[in-house]
């Protein structure tokens, strides 16, 4: 098992690559999603104010 994680001596490079990719893509996903939710809430609030 630890043999596998050692990646034949390339562990630092392989796992850093995968971790970096995961962080960037998941981070982009979460920030995009949260921005959409926030804006949707803003729009809903705005339209509620305008409605009456």
């Amino acid at each position: 098992m630890s043999d596998y994680f050692a990646m034949g001596g390339y562990a630092v490079y392989v796992w850093t690559s995968y971790a970096l990719t995961a962080v960037v893509l998941i981070g982009l996903g979460i920030s995009s999603w949260r921005r959409l939710r926030g804006l949707e809430a803003d729009l809903a609030a705005f339209e509620r104010e305008d409605a009456p």
Binding site: G29, L36, E40, D42, L43
Partner: peptide, 22 residues
């Protein structure tokens, strides 16, 4: 994944534009 991200971000941009117009 690009399609998913693009859909979410395009929606956000459209709402932001609409908010700006309002």
């Amino acid at each position: 994944l690009f399609v998913v991200l693009a859909l979410v971000r395009i929606q956000a941009e459209l709402i932001e534009r609409r908010l700006g117009a309002l």
